[in-house]
């Protein structure tokens, strides 16, 4: 992997915008933030593939588009396959001299959790195995938000959704979240990372690294959803930050299937209750439920620290 120059501060982020305002994302939807930063990093020589989902419907109702880079939507389950085709076409057309071979064209897929961890998983795995030079960005809002907050494989343990309602017998999702980034990492691709819009430079640098590798890369970004997680839109970044501060979300990267790093160390960890109590989707959780989740996270932290070889995420202090 060629080492890209990394951003040190917000001041170094490009000023150009490749997502126009006027789009129909919910007020405070952090997909807007994630995509804006992504496109700033990727620049104009980028072809974007988006599966069906919030981002797709709210940015491209004919005759309007928010995209200033070439963009295609095909269906829900196949963004990775479409991106494979785009990448192969660019390669073939450049080799044959039909498209300027000196121009480096990025191919980026941006999908939600449903289109990535569930229905789009097969196409994603195929794309990764074949080694296409595509950066796949997953904006994970942990449910099918576009159809109205239904459970997905990425929905966390005990969370309320409209298909995991809080009833007398069953309360929220019964299973834990699918560890998609680690499943992707098992494909041994050149770059896998998890990111958080509350740590914007860390996120931007991960996009930059993902675009620099000669093969597939995967960036899993947490995206607090004001509508589905039930919180006032002004707290989106705050909740995203709490996710990392509580280690409910750990920002890591894996380069060449060798170098594993936690890019946002958390020496003093917060209790998961701070993250959970900030969201309506967890309203039904008892203190006992929260402790159960805390124990699960403690184990996860232990596992990650072991992988790194030192304590990058510390004990719960508040």
């Amino acid at each position: 992997m060629s080492k890209p120059t990394l951003y040190k501060s917000i001041f170094e982020l490009p000023r150009e915008e490749y997502l126009s305002p006027g789009h129909g994302l919910c007020a405070g939807c952090l997909v807007g933030t994630i995509v804006r930063v992504l496109l700033k990093v990727a620049g104009p020589n980028t072809i974007v593939v988006t599966p069906t989902g919030c981002l797709e419907v709210s940015t491209t109702p004919f005759p309007y588009t928010a995209w200033k880079v070439p963009w295609i939507h095909v269906a829900f389950e196949n963004a990775a396959a479409v991106a494979s085709g785009v990448e192969a076409a660019v390669k073939a057309l450049q080799r044959k001299g039909l498209v300027d071979p000196s121009k480096k064209i990025n191919v980026v897929a941006i999908g939600g959790d449903g289109g990535t961890v569930d229905i789009g998983f097969q196409a994603l795995s195929g794309m990764l195995e074949r080694g296409h030079r595509v950066m796949y960005v997953l904006y994970d809002n942990e449910a099918y938000m576009n159809t109205g907050i239904q459970r997905s494989g990425a929905t966390p343990f005990k969370a309320w959704t409209t298909t995991t309602p809080v009833g007398k017998v069953l309360k929220g999702k019964l299973q834990p979240k699918k560890p998609i980034a680690e499943i992707v990492a098992a494909h041994k691709i050149p770059y896998v990372a998890t990111a958080n819009p509350a740590y914007i430079i860390d996120m931007a640098n991960k996009f930059r690294k993902g675009l620099s590798v000669d093969g597939p890369s995967f960036i899993h970004v947490i995206q607090p959803c004001t509508t589905g997680w039930r919180f006032d839109p002004r707290y989106g970044i705050k909740i995203a930050r709490l996710a990392t501060e509580t280690a409910m979300w750990i920002n890591w990267e894996l380069e060449n299937n060798e170098v594993f790093r936690v890019t946002v160390p958390v020496p003093k960890r917060k209790h998961v209750k701070h993250y959970i109590r900030a969201q309506g989707r967890f309203n039904h959780l008892t203190d006992q439920d929260i402790e159960e989740i805390q124990r699960f996270i403690d184990k996860e932290v232990e596992r990650i620290n072991k992988m790194v070889g030192k304590e990058v995420i510390g004990p719960v202090v508040e």
Partner: peptide, 27 residues
């Protein structure tokens, strides 16, 4: 001289063809 995409299903076969054709390739 062509790129052959050894897709993991026919659904992806036609999806990849759609992506490639939309990029200007003869597929």
């Amino acid at each position: 001289d062509a790129e052959m995409i050894h897709v993991e299903s026919e659904h992806s076969a036609l999806s990849a063809c759609i992506g490639a054709s939309a990029t200007g390739a003869r597929v």
